[in-house]
């Protein structure tokens, strides 16, 4: 029961944060919304049985990315500047798209038949060790490639952002 309540809290966090991020005209509020949403998501991950990913989510996303966005915002616009007036047509179009998309996906999800496994795999298979093992054996090419991408992104970001 409590568990259910916790999960719904997380879901609520995700959606409220997402709504804040989507509809807020103030960038700072949007970033805060993003953070809330990500936090809720991390909770859901935890709930889905993956503490490691949840931790990573908090560390990298909330700790890294969100903060980086805040920095970028502070470097680019003064926080006191009022954002431009909302464009009703644009917003309407966006909402219409979202509604159509959500309707379609929801319809699909409700109609879909998933071949669910009877019970979750063993605790061992969910361990960080197993994850690390898989990452360095089966997925090592992806892992290396990702490292390379990150490296390049960093170099690229520096190159782009430095003063000409």
């Amino acid at each position: 029961m409590l568990e259910q309540a916790v999960i719904y809290t997380f879901v609520a966090l995700v959606l409220i944060g997402g709504g804040l991020a989507a509809f807020s005209r103030q960038i700072l509020y949007a970033i805060i919304g993003l953070g809330i949403s990500l936090l809720g998501l991390a909770g859901l991950f935890l709930n889905l049985g993956s503490p490691f990913v949840a931790a990573m989510q908090v560390l990298i996303y909330i700790g890294g990315i969100t903060v980086a966005i805040v920095f970028a915002m502070m470097l680019s616009i003064a926080m006191s500047i009022r954002p431009p007036n909302p464009d009703a047509r644009k917003l309407g179009f966006a909402i219409a798209c979202a509604v159509i998309f959500f309707g379609a996906v929801a319809h699909l999800i409700r109609g879909a038949q998933f071949q669910q496994i009877a019970s979750p795999a063993s605790e061992k298979a969910w361990s960080v060790g197993a994850l690390g093992h898989a990452l360095l054996t089966h997925y090592n090419v992806v892992f290396e490639a990702l490292s390379l991408v990150l490296l390049l992104a960093i170099i690229g970001a520096i190159l782009i952002a430095r003063k000409a």
Binding site: A30, D87, K90, A98
Partner: peptide, 22 residues
């Protein structure tokens, strides 16, 4: 799906690049 839709609204309705990123 709901989260995605919210993201979609964010990405489609904002003119601010940072909001788009969010």
């Amino acid at each position: 799906a709901a989260l995605f839709s919210l993201g979609l609204i964010g990405a489609l309705s904002h003119r601010n690049l940072i909001a788009l990123l969010i």
